[in-house]
Nucleic acid binder design. Structure first.
Lengths: 219, 219
DNA sequence: CATTCTAGTTATAGCTTCTAACGAACACGA
DNA sequence: TCGTGTTCGTTAGAAGCTATAACTAGAATG
């Protein structure tokens, strides 16, 4: 199953194990106080070893965070793909919406790590753009199934000529592309406002707004 | 015009002046590397004075950031109010959308300070919720003017019973409330994704998506 | 003029990331 | 089985940060 290095030396095993434990502690710390408060030193102490030891496993703080971001992306993509597979490649938009919301609420700090304020020293490796493409692919499958008839609005014409992001779906109609973008931006709109607390004290139920936005997508 | 302390001693004058200069340098620093990299020490050095001097003006780093957030909120509210006034209390939704987008693109770091990942030690003072109410008030004015006929969807019924956030507009129909929330969440959806760079490399023009979302609101 | 209040200073504690130099344990070929 | 080399973890230390404490020079005030 492993793509590379079938012959795993015990050392590489151990090394991978430690890296995994570091990331685990990192997630715990992030869940507590957010990514900006992540401290390599604290993680090391928590693991019973002394500060600089971690630099054998991660070149620096940014590399650890980059790894965490990639894993977070991966977990969302996996959840999307699972829904797609379960629906034989034609998932309902509402199902994807539910997965997205669950994923976001499950760990808001993880959501912010991916979709919140960009961290200063970080630049997305090609990795993550590839993962985004996986997510978009599942979403586009759902959208081509659910797309309404062509309405040929100005924006859809624009999309017909700018579909690099829909690489694997050369035959998806512009209305499907538009639907996918609407899905993505509207739902992230609700989620980011909700998770940042901008609805608290307003009295309304964000889940209902979310549901209403999902509803309004196809109608 | 000043609500308190008409007799400003020269000392208070100076004090206010220094606070203002600190905030100015802080914004410069934030524009450069984001709020997480904001350093009181660096600001002090930049102003030609030594580290701890700034603690005469701000209790700690969080207090400075809180102040910056409040000012950022204020600037958005002022922009909204200006549009409302210019339109004699009935601004077009498209005009508000344009102001919001302009404000966001003008200084993305300022946008993230308010609508991005919440900063750990910060809790919104009552101030900001009051400012949010001002913003919502202008938005609701626009929405009652532009609201379509009642469609009585489930979400609008929910809103009819949960309108604390629309305090100053007791007579706004649920369809207007729903329109305001759609405006707010959809446009923030596009903006937060765009400013965080999630559309780069996708080939599409976020401004057009934004325009399309504005368009779709009332139709 | 004397007192008080305040803005700034230096020193210091405690935290962080990260580099450098060293010791000890392990893996592996002869 | 015995070197030899790689790797892990250590301590020490530089440079940066927030924040407090103690002190001094100057302005405002009675």
């Amino acid at each position: 199953m492993s793509t590379t290095g079938r012959t795993e030396t015990p050392r590489e095993r151990y090394r991978q194990q430690v890296r995994e434990e570091v990331k685990e502690k990192a997630w715990q710390q992030i869940a507590g106080s957010g990514a900006s408060a992540l401290s390599l030193n604290a993680i090391a102490k928590q693991m019973g070893m002394s500060g600089p030891a971690l630099y054998r496993y991660f070149a620096n703080r940014d590399e650890l965070i980059t790894e965490l971001i990639r894993d977070a992306y991966r977990s969302l993509a996996d959840a999307f793909i699972a829904v797609g597979d379960a629906a034989a490649g034609r998932p309902a938009l509402s199902a994807l919406a539910q997965v997205l919301r669950r994923w976001a609420l499950e760990d808001p700090h993880r959501y912010f790590l991916v979709y919140g304020t960009p961290v200063p020293g970080y630049h997305a490796p090609q990795d993550t753009t590839a993962i985004t493409a996986e997510i978009m692919s599942v979403l586009l499958d759902a959208c081509t199934a659910a797309a309404p008839g062509a309405r040929a609005a100005a924006f859809e014409e624009h999309l017909a000529g700018h579909r690099e992001w829909a690489g694997g779906h050369p035959d998806a109609p512009p209305s499907a592309l538009r639907l996918a973008l609407g899905f993505w931006s509207r739902l992230h709109g609700v989620l980011s406002l909700e998770l940042a607390g901008h609805f608290t004290g307003m009295g309304l139920d964000p889940a209902r707004l979310y549901a209403a936005e999902v509803d309004g997508l196809t109608r």
